[in-house]
């Protein structure tokens, strides 16, 4: 798995370099390549997330939370490719199963953030006035705070569980959608065609849905992808602090917390694989987000613009 990763990264770098030495005229430049690599990585993770439970159910893979019959802290071997952890559970299967867990929580959290943040931002930007000022101050304050601190407090209060972890994460991202959507709405609402619609008798709800939403929604995909990358890290951080998901759930951050106590004795396999899985997923999502961004803001200048 590790070798596969380094090959992939080298490929990415090599392609990027080859691309840059002979500037292509096609719009699919470094940005496009990054987006492609990002898509490939995310698709692989999604497939792993879908297939792992099926393979476990079919008995082809061992159960990620059972391991009493296995040796404790067994090094990588033919029977257990990535070794076993302090309860004899198979590190490889737990790492694979972790991908489903992470994607689930992150998707739920971001969908909630989107559903709250976008309408709130549109309303606030469209209506203006005191409501707008109050909401902007609140969201700016939340936005200033360290992401991890905010979700640590919420996870502490809400307790462990999948919906709880998603709720703790989504609060971090609501302000981001709110800010982007609100500023764009405030900008677009003074355009002539909105004026025209209003003078023809269109109500606020109609204008918001019919004209503003389409203008505003285009900035969301990039933010969504970059936030997904961030959310994977924050979820891992929560797990590492012993918050977020229940202990039995195979989550990368939680597994790394348990691996930490074994590090001084030189046991590396329990620490390496979950972290590596997290690293590559975040890398893939970041590449996808940055690729999308330069591609959308594009105008064929993809190779010059980046984050």
């Amino acid at each position: 798995m590790e070798a596969w990763v380094s090959v992939e990264l080298e490929d990415l770098a090599a392609q990027a370099i080859a691309l840059s030495t002979s500037p292509p005229k096609t719009p699919l430049s470094l940005a496009g390549r990054m987006a492609r690599w990002g898509v490939a990585i995310v698709v692989v993770y999604a497939l792993i997330a879908l297939l792992t439970p099926l393979l476990v159910a079919a008995g082809l893979l061992p159960d990620p939370s059972l391991g009493l019959q296995n040796p404790i802290y067994g090094p990588p071997s033919l029977a257990h490719w990535c070794g076993t952890d302090r309860l004899g559970r198979d590190v490889c299967v737990r790492t694979l199963a972790g991908s489903g867990v992470a994607l689930q929580v992150v998707v739920v959290a971001l969908v909630i953030a989107l559903v709250i943040g976008v309408p709130l931002g549109m309303l606030s930007g469209y209506l203006g006035g005191w409501l707008d000022r109050g909401l902007v101050l609140l969201m700016d304050t939340l936005y200033t705070l360290p992401v991890l601190l905010l979700s640590v407090v919420l996870a502490f209060l809400l307790g462990r569980g999948l919906p709880n972890a998603a709720a703790a994460l989504c609060v971090v991202y609501v302000p981001q959608y709110f800010r982007v959507v609100r500023n764009q709405t405030a900008q677009v609402k003074s355009e002539l065609y909105i004026e025209a619609a209003r003078s023809l008798g269109a109500g606020p709800l109609w204008i918001l849905r019919r004209y503003l939403l389409r203008n505003v929604i285009t900035s969301v995909p990039v933010l969504l992808t970059l936030n997904a990358a961030d959310a994977v890290l924050v979820l891992g951080g929560l797990g590492f602090l012993g918050l977020g998901l229940p202990e039995t759930v195979p989550e990368w951050g939680g597994d790394l917390q348990q691996a930490l106590t074994a590090v001084p004795t030189g046991i590396w396999w329990t620490a390496l694989y979950p972290g590596l899985a997290m690293f590559i997923l975040v890398l893939g999502l970041s590449c996808l987000g940055e690729g999308l961004e330069s591609w959308l803001s594009g105008s064929g200048q993809g190779q010059h613009s980046d984050a």
Partner: peptide
């Protein structure tokens, strides 16, 4: 450029353990 993305994607505790 890759350095920028790579250091961002590193989980802090994992880098520390390594």
């Amino acid at each position: 450029r890759l350095y920028g993305i790579g250091t961002y994607a590193l989980p802090p505790f994992w880098a520390a353990m390594a």
